[in-house]
């Protein structure tokens, strides 16, 4: 009885319709939050006393870096649900995460490099956050590479799910080891987001952006999940019903 919702959620047509209904509820707030946060961050927040206006790239860099990690976690959870309960739509969700996650990781790397140029005078410094982000990109690429190497869909689902779970266990270890490595070699680190001294006018747009990016991810994920379900169920009878 208590599991009825779980099985209902696992039915492709149900999830397909649910995702369609929910998409605007994510997309609109995301658009409003992102536009609002951009305005507050670029025009209202005061310039940093050390970095001037250069710091403003944090409003794209930090949320995308944070989201990249979160997407990997979501992907691993979905993959785990698919593997353990053999729920096919969970695999569809996991697959849909990978591309978005890799994209956010790439955005965080590029913005980090753009930020690095005025700060350090070079586009690349072995900053622990950037390094960990680079490894995360390889984890996403490995996931997608493995999937593309396997022809059978069921096998690709299960194999990539095992990889995602192994990766999610490794992720904190990788991050810890990179921080440890950095603390020894003392490379410069400017991107400390955990400074308690950040004033409210700077912090508020950052949090808004984070929420906006999360909702944007939600909306993109829903659209991609719908496409993935259509692709997987293309021979099923309910698809013809839905599309006619």
């Amino acid at each position: 009885m208590g599991w009825a919702w779980f099985h209902r959620f696992g039915s492709p047509p149900h999830l397909y319709r649910l995702a369609g209904t929910l998409t605007p509820w994510f997309a609109w707030p995301a658009a409003i939050l992102i536009v609002g946060a951009l305005y507050l961050g670029l025009f209202v927040a005061p310039p940093d006393y050390q970095q001037g206006d250069g710091f403003r790239i944090i409003y794209v860099h930090a949320p995308s870096a944070w989201l990249a990690v979160m997407i990997y976690a979501v992907m691993a959870i979905a993959a785990g649900v698919g593997l353990i309960w053999r729920m096919k739509v969970a695999h569809a969700v996991a697959v849909s995460c990978a591309g978005v996650g890799a994209w956010f990781t790439a955005v965080s790397l590029v913005t980090g490099m753009l930020w690095g140029k005025p700060m350090w005078g070079t586009y690349w410094v072995w900053d622990p956050r950037l390094t960990a982000q680079l490894v995360l990109l390889f984890l996403f690429l490995g996931y997608m590479g493995l999937r593309s190497g396997i022809e059978d869909l069921g096998r690709a689902d299960r194999a990539s799910a095992v990889l995602a779970l192994v990766g999610v266990i490794n992720l904190p270890i990788i991050r810890y080891s990179v921080e440890w490595w950095n603390s020894i070699h003392q490379a410069p680190s400017v991107m400390k987001m955990d400074q308690p001294s950040m004033p409210m006018e700077m912090l508020a747009p950052l949090l808004m952006m984070l929420l906006g990016f999360s909702l944007y991810f939600g909306a993109v994920l829903l659209v991609r999940v719908r496409a993935e379900i259509l692709r997987r169920e293309r021979s099923a009878a309910w698809i013809r019903e839905v599309l006619s």
């Binding site: 490894v135 490995g142 590479g145 396997i150 270890i173 990788i174 080891s177 990179v178 440890w180 490595w181």
Partner: peptide
Amino acid sequence: LTLGLRRGGVLLSLLSLPLAVPVLIFGAR
């Protein structure tokens, strides 16, 4: 994971290397 795949060797490296980063860091140190 790469059993029986074409170009399994390249894929094997792509999958293992990020996971091997902590070993490399602690070991080299």
